[in-house]
Simulated assay, not measured.
Amino acid sequence: MIRFARLVVPLLLSAFSVVPFTQAQADQGWPRHIPNRDGELVINHQPERIVSTSVTLTGSLLAIGAPVVASGAAMPGHKITDQQGFFRQWGKTATEKGVKRLYTGEPNLEAIAAENPDLIIVSATGNDSALPIYERLSAMAPTLVVNYDDKSWQQVERVLAQATGHEAQAEKSIQTYAQREKEVKAKLVLPPQPVSALVFNPHSRLVNLWTTESAQGKLLESLGFTLAQLPAVSIKASQRMKRKDIVPLSGENLVTGLTGNTVMMFATGEEGKAALLAEPLLAATPAVKNKQVYALGDESFRLDYYSASNLLTRLEQLFAKQ
């Protein structure tokens, strides 16, 4: 059993900064001291049975070859999920690895305990966060809280790799993607800049804009895209939510908030694009008026190695030189 301890870290916020891991660090062995929500998590031995309470983070665990045995799930059979409620971009891999679906939605403590985990992964934000029961999970097994709303997917992989001893696998996936990104970037002819990158819910007329701190924003910027300036009133709304990756827009803020000359729609296909183009509140925005709206696919909602790779393919299809 892995034992852990919490230590007081005066500069807690700075402790969450992420730097690339070197092979020397990978060879340091155990125990490892990992910055965590309330200080420091000490992991004495390499985990062998990881439970992910966050469907968002499960993909990154799979990408680095970590031994994740079970995971929380989203609603099954949705356009972004398979029949287990796993994200489509890595659902097949999860099935091949024998990852068990524990629950949908609210965390189930009994189901988690039944898997006898030696490491539990929790997301700090998002609908899949189990943070309210963090103390109870910590009493069950070492529990690592990972904040993905201010990190690229590569940074998230490196945090998980340090905790699981899978640095080499993480760096392999990151470098494989980097080479592919370089190739795609050289082919792109970008649409009119700047862009508003977003997720649109036509039923509630709600838009969530991705910020420069989001994984989605970081990916676009790495390819040469420029994110449109966000309105101050919307930024304040985001700060009240304590989220760094999204800025919510609704009502009249839809008009003032979508300032990009192009709209990049995440987590949707052509049907979502059609709904946004048909929304009367958005008719006067620059991108809608000029029909500069692009759907990036259902699998682009949460980014990990799998979805980011798929997104490169989609961007190449849309904007590569002919």
Rank of each mutant, 00 (worst) to 15 (best):
M1V: 11
F4I: 03
L7D: 10
V8Y: 14
S14V: 12
V18S: 07
G29L: 05
W30L: 08
H33P: 00
P35M: 07
P47W: 02
S52G: 11
T53Y: 04
T53I: 10
L61T: 02
L61P: 02
L62C: 10
I64R: 00
G65T: 10
V69N: 01
A70G: 15
A73D: 03
D82N: 15
Q83E: 13
G91S: 13
A94Y: 06
K97N: 10
V99H: 06
N108Y: 04
A114H: 14
I120M: 03
I120D: 02
T125Y: 01
D128N: 08
A130F: 03
L131T: 12
R158Q: 15
Q169K: 09
E171G: 06
K172T: 12
K172C: 08
Q175L: 14
P191H: 06
A197C: 02
N201T: 07
H203Y: 07
N208T: 13
N208V: 13
L220H: 05
F225L: 06
L227N: 07
Q229S: 12
A237E: 15
S238V: 02
M241G: 04
R243M: 13
D245N: 01
D245P: 03
N253L: 13
L254F: 08
N261A: 06
V263M: 09
M264T: 02
F266Q: 04
F266N: 00
A267E: 03
A267P: 01
A274T: 13
S309T: 10
L311C: 08
L315N: 07
L318K: 11
K321P: 05
